[in-house]
Design a protein around this nucleic acid. Sequence first.
RNA 1: GGCCCGAUGGCAGAGGGGUUAUGCAGCGGCCUGCAAAGCCGUUUACAGCGGUUCGAAUCCGCUUCGGGCCUCCA
Length: 455
Amino acid sequence: MIKIFNSLGKSVQEFIPMDKRHIKIYVCGPTVYDKIHIGNARPLVVFDVFVRLLKKSFEKVTYVRNITDVDDKINKKSIETGIPINELTKQTIKNFHSDCFYLKNIHPDFEPKATDHINEMIEMIKVLIKKNFAYEVSGNVMFRVNKFHDYGLLSNRTLDEMIAGARVDVADYKENSADFTLWKPSSIDLPGWESPWGRGRPGWHIECSAMSKKYLGDEFDIHGGGIDLVFPHHENEIAQSCCANETLKMARYWVHNGYVNIDEKKMSKSGNNFITISDLLQKFNGEALRFFLLQAHYRAPLNYKKAYLNDANSSLSRLYRAVDGLGVEGEPDEEILNSLKNDLNTPKAIARAHYLAESANKGSKEAGQLLKNSSKILGILENDSEKWFKEGANQFFSSTNDNDISPKDIEELIKNRLEAKKSKNYRLADQIRNNLFKKGIILEDHVDGTNWRRS
RNA sequence: GGCCCGAUGGCAGAGGGGUUAUGCAGCGGCCUGCAAAGCCGUUUACAGCGGUUCGAAUCCGCUUCGGGCCUCCA
C-alpha cells in the first residue's frame, strides 16, 4: 500500500488508483526562459522517485511532464537578450534535458509543449465561455471565479480572503478582482495565435488543464509540482478543468514538494539567490545532487549549502563501495521499498541503504546485493562502482579541467610508487601519493594492489 | 492585514506518548610502513513556559524565533 500526503485534504492518505491497471500522473515542468536551479531540480528528482515507485507497484504508469514555452517571462527575456523566442526556448529546453540526464531522471512518457496545444486550449476556453464560466472583454478572456463553488479548496482560502489580501492592481475589465486570465491579446511583436477573441496568447494555467486532459483524460490520479504552485496555478487549473469537463475533481491526489532554501530563504529566480544545475555539475556529479535532494523528506524545506553536496558525495561513495562489482539481480530491499511507500520517506530509505552497506562491508553478500537491487527504485547506485570512483564529477565537464590527470598517467605513477614502496623508499612513495592528492586523486593500498579514485 | 508551516545532538536529517535512527565531522582503538577505506567504541539531542498523563522530544495551549503563500515562482 502506497501512502502519500494529499494537499487536497491536507493529510497522508492511502493511494487508491482510479484504475489500478493504469496510473496517470501529471507534473508541472519548467517555463523555459532560463537554466534551472537546484530548487527547480527538487520536484524533478522527487517525482522521478515517485514515478519509479509507481512503475514498480503498478503494471502501467503514464507520466506527463509539460514544458511551458509561451509565457511573458520568455518574452521579456527575449527582448532583454535579443535572442529570438524560438531560439531561446529551444536552447533552454536543450539545457533542461541535459540537466535531467545528469540528475538521473527517467523520461516522462509525454513531454507536451504549450505551443503545440494552442488549439486544445482555445477549445477548452470556448467551452468555458459557452458554459458561462468565462467571459470576454476586448480580447481578454477571464475565468469567472465565483461560479466555481470549490474555488479555494486546494489552497485553503476563501474568495473573501483573497480579495481582502489582494496586493495587485485590479484590472478594470475584471468582474471580480480574483478572476484570472484564460486568454489575452498579443501585440504584433509578441507571440500570438488567431482565436475567436482575436490574435492573442493563453494565460498561464490553461495549458496544464488542456494538456492533462489530452494525455490523461478529464480526471486522473496524481498532479504534482512545487508547493508554490498550489496557488494560484493549481487552484486555477482545478477551476478550469472541473468546470469545462464537468467533473468533481481534476486530479485525485495533489502532491507538492517543499522549497530548497539558501541562507534560510526560498531559492528563486526572482529572488536572485539561485545556483544553477549546470554550474553545480562542473564540480559535482549529478548523482550527488540527486542524493542531496533525496536526503530530506520531500515536503520539508531543504537548505542548500555547497558543503552539503560534498557530504552527499561522501555518503554516496560509501554506498558505492559496498556494491562494488555487483549488478542488479532480483528485487529491491523490502524496507527501502516500504519507506518509499510511506509518503516517499527517502531519508529513511537512505538510512536503510547505509545499514545494508554496513552489513555488506562486514561480509554479507546478500545485503550488498539487496542494496544494488534497490538502485533502480532510488535512481542512485545505478552506475558501475568503478566508474563512480574514477569519474568524479561528470566527465563531460572534468575533461576541460586543467588540473585533470589521465588514468594512464595515474597508473604510471602508481607503478612508480609501488617500486618505491618495495625498496622501502617511503619518502618517495608518500611524495607521489601527496602529489596525486593535490590533483584530487586518492590512493588506497590493498593486499592485491593499489586502487585510485577521485575525491 | 489575512492564511499556513516549522524549531531534534557540532552539522545535515528521520522518527514520534515509555525502547540506539542514520550520515557527515570529532575523539579513542583495530588494520596499515604511514595513509585511505573498512570495522569497533564514543560525545546520550528534541526552542522556552505551562497543561494533559503513571510517563511528553512526541498530544494541547501560550511565548519566542525562523520561513512561506496571498504577485511571477519548482
